[in-house]
Design a protein around this nucleic acid. Structure first.
Lengths: 230, 230
DNA sequence: CTTTGCCCGATTGTTCAACAATCCGACGAT
DNA sequence: ATCGTCGGATTGTTGAACAATCGGGCAAAG
């Protein structure tokens, strides 16, 4: 009886979470706003975020800003220096390797597990999105398409947890890119790789796809390390 | 110059983080206390955590408890139901598979990368710890040793991020175990597996070690799913 | 001229009190 | 028995307050 109660309880809870019509808490909205500014490069790595300033800028209480900071800190987008304030996270050399270690683990694992046809189609869609952006000389679109591509690969696994981990990693990398401007042809060279990986995936040659992806990630890390301080 | 400044700044920041002599914020201590109670099963899945109660129990402000909740929610140990309160997370069938998907990704990836001799030694130490606990009929020790074993495997990769992800996943599983009491011989059957994996790792046969580990995780997931509601 | 020590302003960490919004359960009407 | 309605309890959010801590500037000492 207790088990059925618990089951019913969590089922309702899940339904509520699904049906909920977008009433995010104020702290969540503040966090979302800051996330946006971080992604767009309005807030650059190393920048300081003063509680009172943000509080009055956004018209909310300082305590609320504080809660938003906790969210962002948990996502590593921001670091807290006790008694000194919070600063936009700034990745250093070691972090690059660390981030790519995570990406190798979850992306390769996901692609080697294959995925439903719809999810494979999502990967293909990201490839096409990249080609379209390249044709239109849309550099920002190229970057987004690339992130969609890798996000779609992880989504193959169909794991909520892996998806959130990946999205956080991508957010970190986005932050990182703002530090050193990427040259115009940065992503363009990866388009053929993406397509080849996608081809292998569609052909069901998962081992090969995994190897290609792994090689891609290694090359990408090398390039990132070279571009930045090192 | 700005780059050197930034580098110096983060270097100092890292040093400060390393040297800091344990002055965790109050919110952090509250979170730690709750984490402990969660791990020990004092707080069972589904239980409600009332802000005011915890606040006066621990002698801190409600806002501080709130911040601690944010930490725990980010770690998925607790779920927030808006306007209703926070509840100890309770994993359901789907979550088991999800958690094991994450474990497969990061543990297999880590072991296939090998690791420094010291880190391999740490894996061996966890195996011995398990054998000692088995000899002493220490069931709780067996469980801990098993978690140390898998933690040590992930630590092979030497990635801060992977380590924290793994520790969070292990915390989630710990929570999960409290739901259905595990029978006395639950872990004992895994001891030979652990040793065999460790042997392969020490022998440098990483592919084999990876396969063994993967098989182990699949079996483990199957068993967990069977034990619990299904 | 450099270094040491000290103090001051600014910001964070934490608490407290208050109020609106929301939810749960009980009570009562139909 | 079902459905509204109401009241109590808890959360969400705010504002203000105070101690603790930090960084920088200034002055004194070497």
């Amino acid at each position: 009886m207790t088990t059925s109660d618990a089951a019913a309880g969590s089922a309702l809870g899940a339904a509520a979470a699904r049906l909920r019509v977008a009433v995010p808490s104020v702290a969540d909205r503040v966090a979302a706003e800051l996330r946006l500014q971080l992604a767009e490069g309005v807030l650059l790595p190393g920048a300081r975020l003063t509680e009172s300033t943000i509080a009055e800028d956004l018209g909310v209480s300082r305590n609320t800003v504080r809660e938003a900071f906790a969210e962002l800190a948990a996502e590593r987008l921001v670091v807290r220096h006790p008694n000194r304030g919070v600063f936009v996270a700034s990745l250093e050399a070691g972090d690059i390797h660390d981030v790519y270690t995570v990406r190798r683990a979850i992306e390769v694992s996901a692609i080697r597990g294959g995925g439903s046809p719809e999810r494979v189609a999502a990967v293909r869609a990201a490839v096409e999105e990249g080609k379209a952006a390249a044709a239109a000389n849309d550099e920002e679109g190229l970057g987004n398409a690339n992130q969609h591509f890798h996000g779609a690969i992880v989504a193959l696994a169909g794991s909520r947890r892996l998806d959130t981990i990946m999205s956080q990693v991508l957010a970190e990398m986005r932050l990182f890119f703002h530090k050193a401007t990427v040259d115009a042809h940065f992503y363009r060279g990866y388009l053929p790789d993406n397509e080849e990986i996608c081809n292998a995936l569609e052909a069901g040659d998962l081992d090969h796809a995994g190897e290609l992806l792994l090689a891609y990630l290694n090359r990408s890390e090398e390039r990132q390390s070279a571009v930045h301080g090192e």
